[in-house]
Design a protein around this nucleic acid. Sequence first.
RNA 1: GGAGAGGUGUCCGAGUGGUUGAAGGAGCCGGUCUCGAAAACCGGUGGGCUCUUACGGGUCUCGAGGGUUCGAAUCCCUCCCUCUCCGCCA
Length: 426
Amino acid sequence: MIDLKKLRDAPDEFKASAARRDPDLVSRLDTILELDRQRRAVLREVEALKASRNKASFEVAQRKKAGDDASDLLAELKTASAKIKDHDQRLHDIEQELTHQQLRIPNPPLASVPTGDASANQEIRTWGEPRTFSFEPKPHWDIGQSLGILDLAGGAKVAGKGFPVYVGLGSKLVRGLINFMLDLHTTEHGYVEVWPPALINEASARGTGQLPDLANDMYVTEDGLFLTPTAEVPVTNLHRDDTLAIGQLPLGYAAYTPCFRREAGAHGKETRGITRVHQFDKVELVCFCTPESSGEELERLLGHAEMVLQRLELPYRVLALATGELGFASAKTYDLEAWAAGMNTWLEVSSASVFTDFQARRANIRYRPKAGAKPDFVHTLNASGLALPRTIIALLENNQMEDGTVRIPEALVPYLGVERLTPNAR
RNA sequence: GGAGAGGUGUCCGAGUGGUUGAAGGAGCCGGUCUCGAAAACCGGUGGGCUCUUACGGGUCUCGAGGGUUCGAAUCCCUCCCUCUCCGCCA
């Protein structure tokens, strides 16, 4: 949720920032400003009416207590009350429209975010060297099939396209990666591990910004719950309506959840293999912190996600996303892209974002800067650490050998119990 | 799913139509005392919106949303959540 006071106090500055995302936002912000003016005008009227009503009501109480007659006042109050009801209705209508509009304005980008579409993304750094092959590296769907660890047809049979099945060491690889990542983040990076629900309610989806506009990206159940698209939603909303103590911050959680995405309209792109699927597994890092520290927290989160790739010995690059590429709630995002030798491309395996106070406003997550001080909104951040399918793609494609086996990086060996994936091994 | 009990401020806990934003206690903040601390004592202490340069004022808020009433924490309706018992079930 945008900060209405900020918009009101410095409208031009606010609009200029929003326009870097989308020039159409300017007129929508003007609409909001007008609604805000109306709201405050009606509010002043209705509050004046209520003030005089309260005064008269008090007088009635006094007279009744004293045994005096108050029928003249009561008659007066009856009409005043009707008038108030009328004004309240108008106020309610305006506020409803205002909220409707406000909920649909994305977070303005931070100044350091480059303006433009994907072509304006900035490469921050790279790590590792894409390996050179003495043979033609295969794509992961071929490797997965010949090793017998990936059953796409089976998944399509039991659920549908985009629901992969991992078999044997493939399944163990999924399980091992989840454990490896959670262990790394909890023991070395200091995160508190949580295991949240995979289904979320409407209020949670609104809190992190999936609703109202991104409803079509989620699966809905019959009783109005959504299958979570990312652990960010349940974990961030864990503290919805909370006021955190300053001593709790920064507060970091690491959570595994399956993630569900309808990917409506994405068909035809990246349809082979497991690059884009409807259900996948992900370990997510979520952080609550003070507004002053969110800049450095973003860098820390990014570093923690990078560490996963480094331990897995996967070459990657870090991109600072341009304004046109930012997610709805994000003020700044880094993407982490791992190299996939078989597909001969970079694949997004993680995304680290700072949401400033945008989600905190929606979800009403505050903190008290010091005992006795007024509460203020926290800043929230998250980073994938990491999403599994594309990590698996990179592992299979980069570490494949000419004989068809796949080398397992050292960090994962304890989790898999083997140093190499071989055909039909169990 | 059925029956019952209940949701009050940071926490515990009073309060069944009119100076109740809400007793009392704890906590927290400030002060007195002390070399310092503890204890004791005194004072202060919710949040949102809004008006005001400011001091300060107004309004809303007792799970959520509606309703009755001149007036609702208190009465009525709907929903949500927690607890107990029963049923069902991994």
